[in-house]
């Protein structure tokens, strides 16, 4: 599973961090960091993260 975040859309809301803490995190300056190739075990979490992103910036590719 590939994850891509449109950083032009991302506004650092951090809702994805609550939904999928193993894949997304905010660094010390509050900016988003994420794994672009998490294992399929995280699919449900990442789908929820994509749902709850207020800017709808998260895309799941296959």
């Amino acid at each position: 599973m590939k994850v891509a975040v449109d950083m032009n859309k991302c506004q650092d809301h951090g809702q994805c961090v609550f939904a999928a803490p193993d894949v997304f995190r905010l660094d010390d300056s509050g900016r988003l960091a994420y794994l672009s190739d998490p294992g399929d075990a995280f699919r449900a979490d990442v789908e929820e993260a994509a749902d709850v992103c207020p800017m709808q910036a998260i895309r799941i590719e296959a």
Partner: peptide
């Protein structure tokens, strides 16, 4: 700014 939002998030 981001610090205020992060502080709120820590209480979630």
């Amino acid at each position: 700014g981001p610090a205020a939002a992060a502080a709120a998030a820590r209480h979630r």
